[in-house]
Write a protein that binds this DNA or RNA. Structure first.
Lengths: 133, 133
DNA sequence: ATTCTTGCAAACCCTTTGCAAGCTA
DNA sequence: TAGCTTGCAAAGGGTTTGCAAGAAT
């Protein structure tokens, strides 16, 4: 159970930079394409490995899309929170959910479950997309 | 937008029977294996197609696992609800979440999103597994 | 010098699809 | 008969992995 030490490489720096510059959720492949567009020739597998490492370290947030693709995003807040994502343009708002946290705990207690965790994502259409659509 | 009429075939009957006999969430491959174990030689693609049709008709509930596999389960209640799933044994409790529904609506309204939907799953360890562990 | 990291290509795994033959209604 | 359904095999699409060369510490 020993996490290897992460070394600083130009590839990881480039990946990190792209993730930070992209405000919303993006797939590993998106990030790889963006990297290429900017002139970095980083291998796709390196992108996958770097993102997995960053996610493990809590540096980025992940979201599993309905079709099974994993999306990554730099999170402003390291604490537990949820997302309100625009289905159309991908705009994301980080939302805090004390209500949900409490509800989750209560439901678990009622059914005699412990060691509780949960996943919650909210999808919708943002004001801007509604105006355009 | 015309949903084709579903025909009753022995394959679908067998699949339906297996899904009903398995109480928790199972993957299409699990179901296919169980079918084989019971002597039905149903093709894997047929299992996928049948489960997709059942899910579209609201006859079964689906759950996307972290690794991207889709799990299916016969649901007692056709209405919108969530699940409390035991991480260890897979035991599932269907829970109703008016609190969450309300919270979701409120959050969306606050950020000017409409056409809202959400996904929520709660994971934990059930009393029985705690006793054994 | 050691050990992590990279890149490529190939492998994996779940899932979907094309197509001809088989059934259901 | 008309057209949904099946099964097989092959393709698809995202992700992971083996391995030898290259870097970081």
């Amino acid at each position: 159970m020993n996490t290897p030490i992460r070394r600083n490489t130009k590839q990881r720096a480039a990946i990190s930079e792209v993730v930070q510059s992209l405000s919303n959720f993006h797939s590993a492949q998106d990030i790889h394409a963006e990297l290429a567009k900017r002139g970095s020739t980083v291998g796709l597998s390196t992108v996958y490995r770097a993102l997995a490492a960053m996610a493990a370290d809590g540096d980025v947030d992940t979201l599993l899309r309905d079709d099974g693709e994993t999306l990554y995003r730099q999170c402003a807040d390291a604490a537990h929170h949820h997302h309100l994502v625009c289905r159309q343009c991908g705009a994301t708002v980080e939302v805090d959910g004390p209500t949900v946290e409490t509800w989750t705990q209560r439901i678990a207690a009622e059914h005699d479950f412990d060691d509780v965790s949960h996943t919650l994502e909210v999808f919708g259409r943002c004001a801007q997309c509604r105006a355009q659509g």
